[in-house]
Design a binder for these strands. Structure first.
Lengths: 138, 138
DNA sequence: ATAAACTCCGTACTCTACTACGGAGTCAAG
DNA sequence: CTTGACTCCGTAGTAGAGTACGGAGTTTAT
């Protein structure tokens, strides 16, 4: 359980050193303790947090949204009610995204099918995939 | 079925006029025909395409990726096999994303539940949600 | 005990995806 | 036939998310 240097954390989490410092500046991760020399010393679980950030980004969450996800559990002063409400809002959000992804997937499947069927692929099922609910949510 | 001006297209698709011109420059949408005055004239289905772009972006696809999705069906010279392969790769990709989102969702649900259960919410189920496969895919 | 590798910091640069500006021409409703 | 809304274009600016630089100090493996 010895603390990790920034370089170790970076390679384990699969991101760059500069990015970690950047996230620290942006408040996505806590400032870690330092040794006398000023070197950062990370506990193991910093790696999980950074991986989470990486994956969440790949899913299309912005850094701001990721911060909000983290905020759901920090401070023990937040009332349960509030946490529940915010979490549930996020869940709704995520469900929307899943729906939308499933539509894209169906469209691509349609493409594959029509292709297998050997007919001309000229017309485009992808376009219909997400076309509905033209109005804004979020 | 009369053609639409850029402004109409923009409002129906839920994006800005400048953004449409930008997408045109970037090759995400075709240059539409113009009337003598130079005004762009869009067919109805331009709206679908733009909505598709908007939704795909919300899902975390970059413009470049979106272009790749579209490229799956443009040129009729691409072999069926190739289209199928590329489409299937994208499908796999999307399935991964759906899985990941479902993990986040489960984590949030857990959060809500543990909260309702009244125990201390101190420890963080969210972090585990996406934490696995530390290595890169894509 | 010394070289190679690592870390520090602030600043500056890059890339993506818009968004705004502004002057000039065009359209359409009254 | 005017006037207010719309569109044209090129260029410039912005926000978000990193990424690079470079000189100086620190660790660590041999």
């Amino acid at each position: 359980m010895k603390p990790l240097t920034i370089g170790k954390v970076a390679s384990r989490a699969g991101i760059g050193i500069e990015t970690i410092r950047f996230y620290e500046r942006e408040g996505l991760i806590a400032e870690p303790p330092r040794r006398e020399s000023g070197y950062r010393q990370y506990p193991e679980d910093a790696v999980s947090r950074l991986r989470f950030i990486r994956h969440a980004k790949e899913l299309g969450f912005s850094l701001k949204e990721i911060k909000e996800l983290f905020a759901l559990r920090v401070d023990p002063e937040t009332t349960c009610k509030e946490i529940r409400e915010r979490a549930q809002a996020k869940i709704g959000d995520i469900e929307d995204r899943i729906q939308a992804l499933q539509r894209v997937k169906r469209a691509l499947n349609g493409l594959v099918a029509s292709c297998r069927g050997r007919g001309p692929v000229s017309e485009c099922p992808i376009l219909d995939a997400l076309d509905q609910d033209g109005t804004d949510r979020r």
